[in-house]
């Protein structure tokens, strides 16, 4: 059941933080009661509205870490303290974990934003967290220092070796899974990386929760644009966080996605 009123609410930007070469965090003077894994639709009136995963929501304020990749996200990153943007949500499913579990979080690029939110919540509940972050290079790493301050185990991999180990973060995950003891893998980032992580977890018999990104318009399971082939259910309602079995059962996940008109594109 959805919230019955899904009109956007205009909220104040109280702080703007430049995180790295690509990512800016907007601190908003409002909470939507989001939990790790969920997303909100962010509206700039007269421009557009797009979905963004929530980087933090403590019940009083909310953070969105936005990578400047297109016209809308660039406009969002250019917002100043004191301006307002529209927000509605939270939408979608959450990451689930049990107290005291040993969790492996695999973040690619700005996937480190929602996974840092999960790491901080899991750490509060006495979980042991392996926070594995991968990026092109040092300048694209996100939330590494903050995760260290949290006291979780941080592992860094960069494509060019400018920080941490040189290579893919999935290689780090492989080593951690080989050591054993992981209860669940959580992953947010490029789909090819997540597909690999899901297969690795499956081979090891470890549970995994995957944040599936599709072209979402409404966030309410109505427009049908983000339906994932297989079950055909909308990702914005039955996801974005989905269990390993669900995503690997889909003929679509890891292989192709659809644009805003429904045309298929291969990864």
């Amino acid at each position: 059941m959805h919230k019955l009123d899904t009109r956007p609410k205009m909220v104040l930007i109280k702080e703007v933080v430049r995180e790295n070469e690509q990512v800016t965090t907007l601190v908003l003077d409002a909470s939507v009661g989001a939990e790790p894994g969920q997303f909100v639709n962010v509206w700039i009136p007269s421009l557009n509205e797009k979905p963004f995963s929530v980087a933090m929501d403590d019940g009083k304020e909310m953070r969105l870490s936005v990578a400047a990749v297109g016209p809308f996200s660039n406009a969002l990153c250019d917002k100043k303290v004191g301006e307002k943007i529209g927000v509605r949500g939270p939408f979608g499913t959450k990451f689930k974990f049990e107290e005291g579990e040993h969790l492996a979080l695999l973040a690619g690029g700005y996937g480190a934003a929602p996974l840092y939110f999960l790491a901080s919540e899991a750490a509060k509940k006495g979980c042991t967290v392996e926070f594995i972050v991968g990026a092109r290079s040092k300048g694209f790493l996100l939330n590494v220092e903050k995760a260290r301050e949290l006291g979780v185990n941080v592992h860094v991999a960069t494509d060019d070796g400018s920080e941490g180990s040189k290579g893919y973060n999935t290689e780090v995950l492989a080593k951690i899974l080989d050591e054993g003891g992981i209860d669940c893998v959580y992953t947010v980032g490029p789909e090819v990386m997540m597909y690999k992580a899901a297969q690795m977890a499956k081979e090891k018999g470890v549970r995994a929760q995957i944040s599936v990104e599709r072209y979402m318009k409404c966030g309410m399971g109505l427009c049908g644009n983000c339906c994932l082939d297989g079950e055909g259910a909308p990702t914005c309602v039955k996801g974005p966080v989905m269990d390993l079995e669900k995503v690997l059962d889909s003929p679509e996940f890891g292989h192709y996605h659809r644009d805003q008109l429904g045309n298929k594109h291969n990864f």
């Binding site: 427009c223 049908g224 339906c227 082939d229 055909g232 909308p234 659809r258 429904g262």
Partner: peptide, 10 residues
């Protein structure tokens, strides 16, 4: 819904 065959079948 109805963008894809699988969602219609769903």
């Amino acid at each position: 819904l109805g963008v894809t065959g699988d969602s219609l079948a769903g």
